[in-house]
Design a protein around this nucleic acid. Structure first.
Length: 231
DNA sequence: GCGACAG
DNA sequence: ATCTTGTCGC
């Protein structure tokens, strides 16, 4: 992956090419394992700590952690997050002993100017079903959903529905859910809501975030960690 | 030209 | 994203 040396115009071209590979359709596979992906890093540092956590579904019990440390030089530019984070995530992905049925990525899916947010980018590259779940809006218009858990409104671009604004917990800021690959808007929304417990963020995202942070702080080792089932 | 702007 | 201080509520 030579993302580090790409110019923004070149990156835009790559997004336009990958867009042709995207499949947005109702989920057509069973759901038994979900993954959560996230990145952590120190401010001003070029080292990123990537992680993917596997959870059983619908029980949401953690099964495995895959952690990878990598150098990146592509800058953070809104609309081009994938070029910073996907290479490290792909390494974490490749060392997984078993792949999840769907991967929840911290960021947007098709709710992006060229429909190529990080979740869509990762899905188009890997062939993996994916969903984007972001904490802030990048693209699209919406009205505020109701204050109750489960309330949602469409994220729109012109007439097109590109995602959902979902209240995952009563009276907290909503999250932005959009399909990445091999999912549609409705199935993405449904899955994310099923992944939410008593917190604002869905469990795959929460656990991935906790894992990469502990990894960065030296509390977890690089590589694969199998989590023993508790009996 | 002026705002907006995932992580 | 990360860091930091303070407040609210279970």
């Amino acid at each position: 992956m030579h993302y580090d040396t790409l110019s923004i115009p070149e990156a835009t071209r790559l997004q336009q090419a990958l867009r042709e590979k995207l499949v947005i359709q109702p989920r057509d596979f069973p759901l038994q394992v979900v993954g959560g992906a996230d990145i952590s890093f120190n401010r001003f540092s070029t080292t990123v700590y990537a992680g993917i956590v596997l959870l059983s579904f619908p029980a949401l019990q953690p099964l495995t952690y895959s952690l990878v440390k990598k150098e990146v030089h592509f800058p953070y530019v809104p609309g081009y997050l994938a070029f910073r984070e996907v290479p490290a995530l792909m390494e974490a992905w490749e060392q997984l002993p078993l792949k999840p049925d769907v991967l929840v990525v911290d960021g947007h899916g098709i709710a992006h100017p060229r429909r190529m947010g990080i979740a869509a980018h990762f899905g188009a590259l890997s062939g993996q079903a994916s969903i984007g779940c972001a904490k802030k809006r990048l693209f699209g218009t919406y009205t505020e959903p109701g204050p109750e858990r489960g309330a949602y409104t469409p994220l729109l671009h012109k007439e097109e529905v590109i995602g959902s604004v979902l209240r995952t917990k009563a009276h907290v800021k909503p999250v932005f859910v959009s399909p990445g690959h091999r999912m549609d808007v409705q199935d993405s929304l449904s899955l994310i809501l099923q992944c939410c417990g008593r917190y604002r963020l869905p469990e795959p995202t929460r656990l991935a975030h906790a894992a990469v942070n502990r990894f960065r702080l030296g509390e977890l080792p690089e590589g694969i960690t199998q989590i023993p089932a508790d009996h």
